[in-house]
Design a protein around this nucleic acid. Structure first.
Ligand SMILES: [Zn+2]
Ligand SMILES: [Zn+2]
Ligand SMILES: [Zn+2]
Ligand SMILES: [Zn+2]
Lengths: 176, 176
DNA sequence: CTGCTATATGAAACAATATTACAATAGTTG
DNA sequence: CAACTATTGTAATATTGTTTCATATAGCAG
């Protein structure tokens, strides 16, 4: 059962985070990646909402928790998490959000974790609500052929692509 | 006759710039936009190559010409030029490049200038060579329906979208 | 032309984002 | 344990972009 990319503003987000963290633990373990305490904490901060968060917001956030870090520490964790495909970076706003592609299925069905689920070799497609800040991540498969076509016509060799679509999400349209 | 998005590295770029500046003058005049001396100079700097250039590079560049400006002056000009659709901003690299969509036809055929040629309401699609830095700008029309489809399925109201595709251009593949 | 007004530019300080370089510590392996 | 690699700490610095207020200039009405 397919659920909306944009959860209701008042949904119970604790489910989202617990699933996400559970997935992250399993995924890193199986991929041989070290989700250290710091990296895990940073991921929790990023995953705390469906909005994108800035590096310095995370920094302040951690400071408020009593954990005072230098910017570089946060950036290093963000780099790791991005490499791992657990978070993405919104280029247009210098901010980061947790990858929300449906790992729920894998977890609830006890499927093996798909290691390359969010590999950056497939195109990234994001719907960004400029009202509430929520991000909806779309499976990039549908634009892949189109990108191939464009690239082939120019004999351009594609390594990575990212599509950022800005506008207004359903929830925000309803409450306007 | 359609020419490649990626000109040869050794092409005569003076044609590109003179056409571009001629178009910019006409376009701004007809659109009632004021392409002031400063804005025009900044546009020349941006259009000096098919690569993207950073705001502070432009600043240094102008300083080398004896024109010492504050950052804000450059940013204001860049904002104007972007609003006018004469340049674009690469979000992933905080840099700016001149819009190269074919105005040549209009100029050589004495067609009326199409005022909304590069309106930001249509999707922007860029091919970015990570070797030589050249940008190829693709007519976004082909991905428009796809974006519509994705957005409609989520009842998302699109305002703006930008697709950045990174890889290697033909010229650079040849000389590798 | 003269003064009025809107637009554009100048100048200085500052804010936000990100990186470099090197030291210290923790984890892993033999 | 010793040696090695990966991670984190610390401090300084680089890069990118904005706020604020003052000044200049273009376009226009009288
Ligand atoms: Zn949630
Ligand atoms: Zn919203
Ligand atoms: Zn050229
Ligand atoms: Zn190239």
């Amino acid at each position: 059962m397919k659920q909306s990319l944009f959860p209701q503003h008042d949904h119970d987000h604790s489910d989202c985070t617990s699933n996400l963290m559970k997935f992250a633990d399993l995924y890193c373990q199986q991929a041989g990646l070290r989700l250290t305490k710091l990296r895990r904490t940073v991921l929790e901060k990023v995953a705390a909402s469906h909005k994108a968060i800035g590096a310095y917001q995370i920094l302040d956030n951690l400071a408020a928790d009593g954990q005072k870090l230098a910017p570089i520490s946060v950036y290093r964790s963000l780099d790791f998490l991005q490499e791992a495909g657990l978070i993405h970076r919104l280029e247009s706003t210098n901010s980061y959000f947790a990858c929300q592609r449906n790992f729920d299925d894998d977890l609830t069905n006890n499927n093996p974790i798909s290691l390359n689920k969010c590999s950056e070799t497939s195109p990234l497609v994001f719907l960004i609500c400029d009202n509430c800040g929520a991000i909806g991540e779309v499976e990039g498969a549908s634009i892949e052929p189109l990108i191939e076509t464009v690239a082939n016509s120019e004999k351009f060799k594609v390594k990575h692509s990212q599509l950022e679509i800005k506008g207004t999400c359903t929830s925000c349209q309803a409450s306007s």
